[in-house]
Design a protein around this nucleic acid. Structure first.
Length: 464
RNA sequence: GUGGUUGUAGCUCAGUAGGUUAGAGCACCAGAUUGUGAUUCUGGGGGUCGUGGGUUCGAGCCCCAUCUUCCACCCCA
C-alpha cells in the first residue's frame, strides 16, 4: 500500500460546490446573452486530430498545444533516426491527437465537415474547456473555459457591431461598470506598415506597439529598432500613439495618414460601417463612459492580438483598475475554413474568459447573494415521528418547485441549524410534537432570525 | 521555453546562529444550553515541516533533484 499524496496537474483546478454555483451564474448570463442574439449551442470533442490544430496559431501557439501520446506501443512505428531528426519530427510519429487549444478552430472544422447540412449564415456558441501548455500565472491556467460565439458565412459588419453589443450587454449584466472594449482592424495595421514604408512588417510592429502601456514610448522605440524597423519609419509611426479626441476624430486622422493604402482604406471603411451599425442599434457601448471619463468603446491602433488567423476587425476587452489581462477577445477571420478545403467562408467571433471574469467579480465583490445559495428550505426533525410527518411535507415543497431537504437524522438542533447556516439555506422548517399536534409548522427566516407558525400551504405560498 | 519566487495543522502564518516531545489565530469536534445557527465560556482532536536524496553526532532551518505557487519575459482567456 503506497500512501502517496494525491495532487492535480499544474495549472488545473477543482471547483467546489460554492465555486461551481458562482461559475454557473456567469455561464448563465453569457448563455442568455448569446441566445438573445440568435446563437445556438455546439459542443465538440476535447481532443482533435493534431493536424487540425497545428499551424493555426502561429509558431508560439503550436508550442503550447497539449499533444496526446498514441496509446499502446507508441514507439512501434518509429526508427532510431526519427529521434535524431529532433522532437518536432518525432512528435508527428508518436502523437496523432491533441487537446483543443481554442474553440474557433474546432468550430471551423465542424463547419467544413457539415457544410451541406448547415444553413448559412451559421451562428453558434460554445462553452467548453480548452487547454494550453502555458506556464501558469494568476488568471492564466492550463485548463480554462472559453465561451465563444461565432458566425460564419457572411461578410456583414452587422456581426461585428452585434459582438460589441453582446460584450457590453453581458458584462453590464454581470455588474461591471468600468471596462474598455478596444477595437482595431488588421487592415489598419497593414496600412500603417505600408504608410511608414515597412510594408509587410506589421507583425513585428504590432508585437512592439502592443506593449506601449507597459514599457512606454521609449521602450517601444527600442524594440522596434531591434526588430529591424528603420529610424525613419519609427519616426513616422510615433505620432500615431497619441491620436486624441473622439473615435470619429481618430478615424479622420487615420484617413489622412492611411487613405491611399488599399489595406488601410479597407480597414477604415469597415470600422466606419461598424460604427454606423452601432448607431442604428442605439448601442449603449457607443454612448457609455467609464468613471475615468473615457469612452467605453475605443478605437485603439495599438491593439494587435497574436492569433494569426485574424484578417479584419479585432476586439479585446479589459476591465479597468484590476490586475488582470483581457477577459474577452476576438475578431474576423476570412480564411479559416479555407485551410480545411472550404474557401470563401468568412467568419467572425469572440470569446469570454470565464476564469478571469470569475477572478474579477470576486475581486470587485460583484457576485450577488442569490448566486451562492443552494437549498431554499431545510426541514429539521426531532425524532422518528417527526421524520415520518416531515416526509409528505418535503414532497409537497418539491412538487411546488421549492428546493428542499430534510436533515437525514435527528441530530441535535444546534447541529441541524448549523448545517443550514453553513449551507446558506435561508429558511428552516421545524417539525416537533407541538407542530404535529397543531398542524402549524414553524418557519424560521435564518437571515432575520424571525419565526412564525404557518400551515404548509402558507409556507409554500411564502417561499414560492 | 528563459530568469526568479513560494511550499510548516482544513485556512492564514510564527519558528530565533541547525540542538530534546514543532507553535498561534481562525476553522473543526465535544460540553456549558435535553426544541433553535452566525456572539460568549470551557475542553479536545489534528502536522512523517511539498516529495526524494545528501551533508551532519543531530536538519523545518544547509546542499542537490523534483513537484507546486506566484512574478517578470514570451505569449495570451
Amino acid at each position: 500500500m503506497s500512501k502517496e499524496k494525491p495532487s492535480i496537474p499544474k495549472g488545473t483546478r477543482d471547483f467546489g460546490p460554492a465555486v461551481v454555483a458562482k461559475r454557473n451564474y456567469i455561464f448563465g448570463i453569457i448563455r442568455r446573452t448569446f441566445e438573445k442574439f440568435g446563437y445556438l449551442p455546439l459542443e465538440t470533442p476535447a481532443m482533435e486530430q493534431l493536424s487540425v490544430l497545428t499551424g493555426k496559431y502561429g509558431d508560439e501557439g503550436d508550442q503550447l498545444i497539449f499533444k496526446i501520446l498514441n496509446s499502446g506501443d507508441f514507439l512501434a512505428k518509429t526508427k532510431p533516426e526519427d529521434v535524431e531528426q529532433g522532437y518536432k519530427h518525432l512528435t508527428r510519429k508518436i502523437s496523432e491527437k491533441a487537446l483543443r487549444y481554442d474553440l474557433t478552430v474546432p468550430f471551423a472544422r465542424f463547419v467544413v465537415m457539415n457544410r451541406n447540412e448547415i444553413t448559412f449564415p451559421f451562428k453558434r456558441y460554445q462553452i467548453q474547456p480548452v487547454w494550453r501548455a502555458d506556464r501558469p500565472q494568476k488568471g492564466r491556467y492550463r485548463e480554462f473555459y472559453q465561451c465563444d460565439a461565432d458566425v460564419v458565412g457572411t461578410n456583414s459588419l452587422l456581426c461585428e457591431a452585434e459582438i460589441v453589443q453582446m460584450i457590453n450587454g453581458a458584462l453590464t449584466d454581470l455588474g461591471l461598470t468600468d471596462f474598455t472594449i478596444k477595437i482595431n482592424h488588421r487592415g489598419v495595421l497593414a496600412g500603417i506598415a505600408e504608410a511608414i514604408d515597412e510594408k509587410g512588417r506589421e507583425g513585428d510592429i504590432c508585437v512592439a506597439i502592443d506593449k506601449l502601456d507597459k514599457i512606454g514610448q521609449e521602450g517601444v522605440r527600442k524594440e522596434l529598432l531591434e526588430r529591424g524597423i528603420t529610424v525613419d519609419a519609427v519616426n513616422k509611426l510615433e505620432p500615431l500613439y497619441d491620436l486624441n479626441g473622439s473615435n470619429e476624430e481618430k478615424l479622420a486622422q487615420l484617413q489622412s495618414i492611411l487613405g491611399n493604402t488599399a489595406e488601410g482604406e479597407r480597414g477604415l471603411n469597415d470600422l466606419r460601417e461598424v460604427w454606423a451599425y452601432l448607431q442604428g442599434l442605439q448601442s449603449k457601448a457607443l454612448t457609455a463612459e467609464n468613471p475615468s471619463g473615457e469612452p467605453r468603446l475605443m478605437l485603439d491602433v495599438t491593439l494587435a492580438r497574436g492569433l494569426s488567423y485574424y484578417t479584419g476587425c479585432i476586439f479585446e476587452v479589459k476591465v479597468n483598475n484590476v490586475s488582470m489581462g483581457s477577459i474577452s477577445g476576438g475578431g474576423r477571420y476570412d480564411n479559416l475554413t479555407g485551410m480545411f478545403g472550404l474557401p470563401g467562408v468568412s467568419g467572425v467571433g469572440f470569446s469570454f474568459g470565464v476564469d478571469r471574469i470569475y477572478d474579477v467579480l470576486e475581486e470587485l465583490q460583484l457576485f450577488p447573494e442569490s448566486s451562492q445559495q443552494s437549498t431554499t428550505a431545510l426541514i429539521v426533525q426531532f425524532d422518528k415521528d417527526s421524520e415520518m410527518y416531515a416526509l409528505p411535507v418535503l414532497q409537497q415543497l418539491r412538487d411546488a418547485g421549492i428546493s428542499a431537504e430534510l436533515y437525514p437524522e435527528a441530530a441535535k438542533l444546534k447541529k441541524q441549524m448549523g448545517y443550514a447556516d453553513q449551507k446558506n439555506i435561508p429558511y428552516v422548517i421545524l417539525i416537533g410534537s407541538e407542530e404535529m399536534a397543531s398542524g402549524k409548522l414553524k418557519l424560521r427566516d435564518m437571515k432575520r432570525g424571525e419565526q412564525h407558525d404557518l400551515t404548509i400551504e402558507e409556507i409554500i405560498t411564502q417561499l414560492k
